[in-house]
Computed example of a mutant assay.
Amino acid sequence: MLSRMSVRAVPGFRTAAIAAWALGATAVVAQIVYSMTAPADRTAMTVLAVVAFAAASVLDAAARCGPRAAVALVAVAGGGGLAAEAVGVHTGFPFGDYAYTGSLGPALVGVPVLVPLAWIMMAWPAALVGRVLGRGWLAVPVAGWALASWDVFLDPQMVDAGHWVWADPTPALPGVAGVPLTNFAGWLLVATLISAGLVAFTRSDGQLRRGPAPVLYLWTYGSSVWAHAAFFGRPAVSLVGGLLMGVVAVPFAVALWRAHR
């Protein structure tokens, strides 16, 4: 079964892993530059960070579990994310009534192409989190939470940047004004469905020792907590997101540390 295949049996895994690390580093640098750039000039860094991170996740999947895992990631997370966003932006289900402003570049079926890439970039690390922290079928809801909780940071940042708007942002999570609860409920639903399609391609044996995906997940968590507290003027989002995403990020960090002792 592919999901149990040794990484060393995957042709070209070393090249894919090295490229994944390089692209992951590019994403991190772009995010750092983003935080030091004037708000009006941040879109280019947003695009670079998402594209590089998404490519790193795809290559990480290929290096760990073979090309079928990479194809599954693009199809399930990219295709599923695009479908969910297209339905959402045209019907209001499952996220709520929202609209993109056109600031994120070219769109497909009303959804910026960058958006399904964002689903791809975090869905793979979240699937690894689910496999490490969850046993058996529990890996799916854990992975779903690992992915959906990230949006507690993402959505306020993107709303403040003017990339999309909500028709009615109430009721909202305490401390996360401007984003309705329906959005987070929709994210949890879609993230769990996507995770169900990806967890089958992951495995728990030694996966923390290879590739950048686990590090990128924890970087996203830590940098999001810091950025909302220090740069974006949203300390309440830093606290709430830190707690909700921290439910999985902190135990995952412990697992990563133990794997590398």
Rank of each mutant, 00 (worst) to 15 (best):
M1A: 12
L2P: 15
R4P: 00
R8C: 06
V10H: 11
F13A: 15
R14A: 08
R14H: 10
T15Y: 01
A16Q: 06
A19D: 02
A22Y: 00
A22Q: 03
G24I: 05
G24L: 05
T26K: 02
V28I: 15
A30H: 05
Y34E: 10
Y34W: 15
S35Y: 02
S35R: 02
M36S: 10
D41K: 08
R42N: 07
A44F: 03
M45S: 09
V47K: 09
L48C: 13
V51D: 02
A52F: 00
A52C: 03
F53V: 01
A54R: 11
V58Y: 06
L59G: 03
D60Q: 09
D60L: 02
A61D: 04
A61R: 06
A63D: 09
C65W: 15
G66P: 06
L73R: 04
V76Y: 05
G79F: 09
V87Q: 02
H90T: 13
H90S: 15
T91P: 13
T91K: 08
G92S: 00
G92N: 02
D97Q: 14
Y100C: 05
T101P: 04
T101H: 00
S103G: 14
G105F: 08
P106F: 05
A107C: 08
V109Q: 11
V109P: 00
V111E: 11
V111I: 13
V113Y: 10
L114R: 04
V115S: 04
V115W: 02
V115Y: 04
V115D: 08
V115N: 13
P116S: 06
A118H: 06
A118V: 07
I120M: 11
W124R: 12
L128T: 02
G130M: 04
G130Q: 06
G134F: 06
G136A: 07
G136W: 10
W137R: 14
W137F: 12
L138W: 15
P141D: 11
G144E: 07
W145V: 01
S149I: 01
D151K: 07
F153C: 04
F153N: 01
L154G: 14
L154M: 14
P156L: 03
Q157V: 11
D160N: 14
G162K: 01
W164A: 10
A167L: 08
P171Q: 08
G178S: 09
T182L: 03
N183Y: 07
N183W: 04
F184G: 09
F184H: 12
A185N: 04
W187D: 03
W187S: 10
L188Y: 13
T192L: 07
T192S: 14
S195G: 13
A196H: 04
L198P: 00
V199H: 11
V199I: 15
T202D: 10
T202Q: 04
S204C: 10
S204A: 15
Q207I: 15
R210G: 00
L216K: 05
W219Q: 10
T220I: 00
V225C: 11
W226V: 15
R234D: 06
G241N: 04
L243S: 03
L244R: 01
M245F: 07
G246V: 10
A249W: 01
A249F: 02
V250P: 11
P251Q: 07
F252H: 11
F252K: 12
F252S: 06
A255Q: 14
L256W: 09
L256G: 07
L256H: 05
W257P: 00
A259G: 12
